[in-house]
Every structure is written in C-alpha cells, then in structure tokens.
Nucleic acid binder design. Structure first.
Length: 813
DNA sequence: AGCACGCCGACT
DNA sequence: GTCGGCGTGCTC
C-alpha cells in the first residue's frame, strides 16, 4: 500500500491522498506533477507534496492517472514557502499552487467521446445524437466543445447521455501538454560526408554545380566563423543562397537539417561599461555589506536619483561571484524597462526576466532555466510573482521601490505581500534581503529604527545634483484672483512655457483617468450611476461614453438627462483626458502624450510612450501615478501636479504615507542629469502637513508624524490588520450576517474589532459589501489569533441562514 | 472549479 | 403531470 499527497489547482485548502503502486512509488519524488481523477469526471494536474504508506481511514484513495515529470519541477523549499503563504495569508494552498505555476504547466483535461464497436440502429436516435454519430464516423475523437458546435447548443449533457445510454459512444479524458518548445531549424553536413574531412573532395563533388558550391562555401565560412551550429536562416541570408539550392543539396544527402530548442528570451550582452561607484555609493555599499553580516534584511534609503541601481549592480556582482543567485523584484516591469535594460546590458544573458506580459511558453522557459540553475538565470528580474519561481542556491533578494503598494496582491487569492513573503523565502534559503526606496514604507522604516533591519542612507543625489525646488500654488487664492485657465494656474503655465522654450520636457500628474469622474445634470443634479456598482460613471469625452471603473460597464454619453430630460449636462471634476485637451489648447505647438491605464494597453503600450518621451518626440507627458515609478528622463526639468488634494484625501489609513511617496517620487523625476529640476504643486491647502513635508523633503517629519498617528489609532506597524470582507446580492442577508460575524469576533477575540462598516463603494457587480477590520497588537500571538478567527469563520459557515455569503480575508490589508 | 443531487415554476 | 431553473455540498 503506497500513497502520495497532492495539491490540486482548485480553491481547496488541503492536500488529497491518492494510491500508487510500488513501482510508481519508487519513481515519484516530491515536486513532480501527476494527473489525477477528481470528482466524477475531471482530471487535474496535481503536485506531489508527500509520499507515505498510511492508508486513509475515511475513504478509499483513488489511483493516479499518470505521472507527468521525470524529475521534480518544484523544489521542496518552494512547497514549504507556498504552504507558509497559504497559512499566513489565510488562503487555499490550491490557490497558491494555481497562481505560482505557469498556467501551461497545469494541464487541463478535455472530455472527448469516441464511437464504440456496437452497431446501433440510427432510427432510435434523436436528430442531435445522429449528427454527433455521423461526425464521429469521419473523426475518431470529438471534444465536448466540438459537439456543442455540431448540435449548435451550449449544453451537451443530454446528447452525450443519450448516446452513452444507447452505447454508441464512450467517454475519454485526455490531457495535452500546452508548452511547446520553440524549435529552430539548423543545417549541417550529412553524416555521409563527415568522414570526408577533405574539403576538397566535397568541392570536387559539386564542381559542376557552381550555385551549390557557393552555398557550401558559405556554410563553411559561417561554421568556421564561430564554430557553432549553423542556422538555416543564416545560411539563406546571403545572396545566391536560395532554399531551392539548399533543397537540392539536402536531396543529394550532402546537407542535412536538424532542430534545436531555442530560448524565446535572449539578451545580448553589451560591452561592459567600466564605471565606478562614486564616494557616497562606495560608502553605502560598504555599509550594506557590514550590516548584512549580522542582519538578514537591510533597508537602503536613498533619495531619488542617488544612484541606487549602481549599488544593486555591485551587490549582484558580489553574489554571483559566490556562485549564488539573485532575485531582483520590482513593482511593475513594464514601467521599469530602463532598469531592465541597464541590468541586461551589464549582465547580459545571466539575467532572466519574468513578468505578467510574458507568454505562457516564455514563462515555462524561465521556470526551467531557474530550476536547472542554468547559467542564464543567475539573476532573476521580476515582478511579485517571480517569488514563486524555483530558486535553488538563492543568495540575495533585492526589492526595489519596496514601498510600492503593487507588491501586495489584492484581488484574486493569494493576497500576499511580495516584500514580506520574500523575506520569509530568504530566511528559508539563508539568503539576504536588500530593500531599496527613496521613500521607504512606514513599516520598513520602523523595522529599521527598531533594529530588526539594518539601515543605510544615501542622502545625496548622484553628481551632487540638488534636489528639485518645489513651489506651491494656492488654488483657492488663484481662483479668487481669476488667475486660472481651466485647471492651470498662471504660475504653472508660465513655467511650462519657459521649459518648452529651453527645449526641455514637462511631466504633468493628475491622479485620475478619463475626462471627468462624473457628469451632472445642471437642472436636476442627477449623476449617472453604474447599474451594478455603487459608483458614478466616469466620462470619456473622446469615446463619448460613460464607463464604470469597477465592472467595466459602459454606456453612450446621454444627450438628455435620464431623470428630467434636460440637455444641460456638465462634466464635473477632471481626469487626464481633460488635462490633455486643455494642454492642447494652451500649448498648441507642443507635442503631447498621455500615459494612463487607458493608453498603455497591449504588450508594448508603455514602451512606446516611454521611448517616444525619451527620444524627445514628446514635450509634455500627462499621466496618472504611473509617471512616478522609476522612470529616468534626463531632460525633464519641470513636474506639475495639478491637484495634490485628491491624492491626499483618500479614505485609507495609508493615504498620507502614499501621498508623500507619490509626490516625492514624481518630484524626483525632475532634473536628474545636470539640470536643476522644478516642481509645481497646485493645492487648495498649501499648509497641509504632507504637502509641507514634501516641499521640505522631510521624510523624517512625515515618518514621525505618521508613526504617532498609527500608534494612537491602532494601525501598523503597531498592529497587524486583517480585513474581512462580506459580499452578497441580498442586502438584508448581508447586513445580518455581517453584524453576526462582527459580534462573534468581538466576543471571541480580546482585541479591537471594527465594523461592520459600509465601504465607500458599497456595491460592485450587484453584490453588496460590508467590511470588518480586526486589529491584532504586535504583542499578541498572531498564529493563535488566526486560529481563533478561523474557528469563528467555521461556525459562521455552519449558520444555514448565511449560506452563500462570500467571506474574503485580506491579511496585512 | 465542476458536477450531481434536490426542491419549486412554465410548459408538452 | 414533467422539464429544468440554480442553490448547496462534495470531491482523495
């Protein structure tokens, strides 16, 4: 009796036990994939996590269907880490597995049907069944999707059941490997001629065919040039080398073709630039190395444009010299192409890049390269999900822009924080972690202040460039004195003009996309709302449409008010699209572009805009917070923030921290090389503390201020938060269940529990929402508290009245 | 995630 | 009278 435990790619928080025979047992190792039957029909790709001989007591284990791998494709350390994520972030291990593996390694099964040997009278079959039977006579295997096409119905069950009961067909489940390696055609001398080392001999042989001789000569010259297999493509690249001639050589068995795998992702190493760290960087590097001797994590707090990347490069170099690997995490790869270019230019093919816009096949290749500890994956550069790659021999994890909120996965489970999960992963590997940021998160700064992390400062900009000068424009006053044109103050307009005259570039931040966040009827005050969400519809002028940012619902812009039929409808508030229109009017000669979610769709959406801006094909770039994320442009000398207030006033305990980070980061885009930068922030409240802190580059002030608030109002880093979100279509049922759950939490846990609260947006996609916030003090046992929470949730599930209420936990929300 | 089992409305 | 709607529960 032999058994294996497996994880299934489903939202199930346990492993499942299957039976295997002795031979299979010997062959199977932890970390290989098997396909197993689960439920009535389906086959799933499961991952082996354990092998043992204890027969389950409560059920009989099914047999596995097949073994997919010869060797483990997931390491034991990865599995351990995945279980940690499932436990810490209170989600199903199946969900972690599903999002951790490239989806083409998790095979789907398709249900196919085939004819039986039985002869059945067609008369007794229905029309649909007859059609399917006929189709099967020309094609031996048909999938359910194909059946649905044949009978032109969505539901195939009835037909399939009819055919099954008449014993016309049998049902088969098949899995197909989705990953296909990219094969490239190469050319070589046929084995017949390999022994004829004498080139002359071969040449004599083709003497009568000058064209063929020519091709052969070209082949030899290619081969002798770099002693590598010769690509057919390269052979054909020369004039006079046509595929017809090659074909006749193939026919004569003089040449032969063969195929080799090609990695889809290849970087060319450029010439190594021999730059040196400046003094401040050198000191910082030494301090980091010193701190890493007795701390596992070090925070590098370096102001914008201080040259953190060069320090990263030196650290990476140190690590790979020790034959260890480096994981380099960044918030969003598309926005950091510049960093990717710099690292790949320096380390060439040692770098593997991993991000969400990669195709499935590309991801599998990176996975394999990482697993095999291959030389071209010494440095893995990726977004948060790169954390799930197999990383044997990991020595260092660098987390750039560690404060970025994109490191926390929000929507589908697992809702993990890549920075925190990376620190745990590093511990498992006995590896070190470097966090880098110009505006560190409060938590990380706190951990550094309290000695949990090492701390290194880099306070001077590279080349001793001054930090940009920040000017405030009081919008209240400017509007009062009628010094505004649209959303632009006279100060901002003048400065843009000056900058354009100097042939330098401008960047404008407006943290809202669309033309305006809502439209309003001037007669009755009606604001069009999304029918399924509790939000007003955002107005898109160019498309003349109203769109919901939460569910994507879109309608044409109404000509008359749906409420009172009046035609006087006005756009309220403003977004990037409107700013773009205004800029076009104000600066008709300037070249303008807009960068936000709506203009950067597609694989190279960002790159196009960024490249154009870099090449100075754009004078003024308007965008949302995307602009702030690590883009270096040497010629940007003016940054304008159109309205800082809607950045600050967000309903979130982190809003001040985030506003400080965003404004400081976007200000940091100004004046990077040798030009002094200028930043203009328009606000209704210039004395607001965050704005003052940004103006004075006062990180410490912001930190102390925030820390004090967090302590008084029971927030991180003094408390850990778990948000419990309840969703249901039935409003009354939701209210009752939320009240019940909050009350039971309050009774069970002796820690602060807030709510249930109505969120700002209380309905999305026709589901009402309530949230409960659990605050766990640092000095209480987190694991114990989570156990209690799970217990409460189990009893909640048992209340039959509350069936169907969705409960979503978000740890470290 | 599927899929089956099970209890209430519009049809041959 | 049945066909079929989707609510709920289970899958090794």
């Amino acid at each position: 009796m032999y058994f294996i435990d497996v994880i299934l790619p489903l939202n199930l928080n346990k492993t499942f036990t299957y039976a295997v025979n002795e031979e299979e047992f010997k062959f199977i190792q932890i970390g290989i994939r098997v396909t197993v039957p689960f439920g009535k029909t389906k086959l799933y790709t499961a991952l082996v996590t354990n092998k043992h001989q204890q027969a389950p007591q409560l059920y009989e284990a099914k047999d596995i269907y097949q073994i997919l791998d010869e060797k483990p494709i997931v390491t034991p350390l990865q599995i351990e880490h995945w279980f940690w994520i499932a436990s810490y972030y209170a989600c199903a291990i199946g969900d972690v597995y599903k999002s951790a593996m490239p989806s083409s390694l998790i095979l789907d099964s398709t249900t196919n049907v085939a004819l039986t040997e039985n002869d059945v009278n067609d008369q007794i079959l229905s029309d649909d069944a007859f059609l399917v039977k006929q189709a099967l006579e020309s094609k031996s295997l048909i999938s359910l999707e194909e059946i649905s096409k044949i009978i032109q119905k969505k539901k195939t069950i009835s037909v399939v059941n009819e055919l099954l009961s008449n014993q016309v067909i049998t049902v088969l489940e098949t899995v197909k490997e989705k990953y296909t390696p990219k094969l490239v055609k190469y050319i070589k001398i046929h084995p017949n001629w390999e022994n004829h080392t004498d080139l002359q001999h071969l040449m004599d042989h083709v003497q009568k065919f000058p064209k063929q001789k020519n091709v052969l000569l070209h082949y030899f010259s290619l081969y002798s040039k770099d002693k590598k297999p010769v690509l057919l493509k390269n052979l054909l690249s020369k004039d006079g080398c046509t595929s017809a001639i090659v074909n006749s050589l193939l026919k004569k068995d003089i040449l032969q073709t063969y195929y080799l795998h090609e990695d889809r992702v290849i970087f060319k190493k450029k010439t190594k630039n021999n730059w040196q760290l400046n003094n401040a960087q050198q000191v910082a590097l030494e301090e980091i190395n010193k701190a890493l001797q007795d701390k596992d994590v070090v925070l590098l707090h370096g102001v914008t444009a201080s040259g953190k990347t060069e320090i990263y490069i030196k650290l990476i170099e140190q690590t790979i010299q020790k034959e260890q690997r480096v994981l380099f995490l960044l918030p969003e790869i598309a926005l950091t192409t510049q960093l990717v270019h710099r690292l790949t230019a320096y380390f060439g093919n040692d770098v593997a890049v991993f991000h969400s816009k990669y195709s499935n096949n590309e991801r599998v290749e990176v996975w394999q390269a990482c697993l095999n500890n291959s030389h071209n994956a010494k440095i893995i550069l990726g977004v948060r999900s790169a954390l799930f790659l197999p990383l044997p021999n990991l020595g260092l994890i660098i987390i750039d822009e560690e404060h970025e909120s994109t490191y926390k996965q929000q929507d589908p489970a697992p809702r993990y924080h890549a920075r925190d999960a990376a620190i745990v992963l590093a511990k498992m590997h006995h590896a070190k972690v470097l966090l880098g940021s110009a505006t560190p998160s409060i938590e990380s700064s706190f951990n550094a202040q309290t000695g949990k992390y090492g701390l290194v400062h880099l306070l001077k900009r590279y080349n001793n460039n001054p930090l940009p000068e920040i000017l405030l424009v009081d919008l209240k006053d400017t509007y009062f004195r009628k010094r505004m044109q649209g959303h632009f103050s006279d100060t901002l307009i003048e400065n843009i003009q000056e900058t354009l005259q100097k042939n330098e570039q401008v960047m404008l931040l407006q943290n809202r996309r669309g033309y305006s966040p809502y439209i309003e009827c001037n007669s009755c005050g009606h604001v069009p709302q999304c029918p399924s969400c509790d939000v007003s519809l955002t107005f898109y002028k160019h498309k003349s449409a109203l769109k919901c940012h939460y569910c994507g619902h879109s309608i044409a812009k109404p000509v008359i008010c749906h409420q009172c039929s009046h035609t006087d409808i006005v756009a309220k508030g403003f977004g990037t699209e409107q700013i773009e229109d205004e800029v076009k009017l104000l600066f008709p000669l300037a070249k303008i572009a807009r960068m936000d979610q709506d203009t950067t769709k597609g694989k190279f959406g960002y790159e196009k805009i960024i490249d154009a801006y870099k090449n100075k094909e754009i004078d003024i770039l308007i965008g949302t917070q995307m602009l702030a994320k690590g883009l270096d442009f040497d010629e940007v000398t003016l940054v304008g923030v159109l309205n800082a207030d809607n950045i600050i006033n967000q309903p979130n305990y982190k809003s001040h921290e985030k506003a400080y980070q965003l404004l400081t980061q976007v200000a940091g885009r100004a004046g990077r090389k040798d030009k002094k930068g200028k930043v203009i922030i328009q606000t209704y409240d210039p004395l607001q503390s965050v704005i003052q802190q940004v103006v004075h580059h006062d990180y410490t002030g912001m930190y102390n201020h925030e820390l004090n608030l967090r302590k008084n109002f029971l927030y991180p880093p003094y408390y850990r938060l778990i948000q419990v979100k309840l969703k249901h279509k039935d409003y009354q049922k939701l209210l009752e269940s939320a009240a019940w759950l909050a009350q039971v939490f309050k009774n069970t846990l002796s820690i602060p529990v807030l709510g249930p609260e109505e969120p700002i947006i209380n309905k999305i996609r026709n589901e009402y929402i309530r949230v409960i916030l659990i605050k766990i003090p640092n000095n209480t046992n987190f694991i114990h508290t989570k156990k209690l929470i799970n217990k409460v949730l189990t009893s909640f599930d048992a209340v039959s009245n509350y069936k169907g209420v969705k409960v979503i936990l978000n740890v470290d929300y």
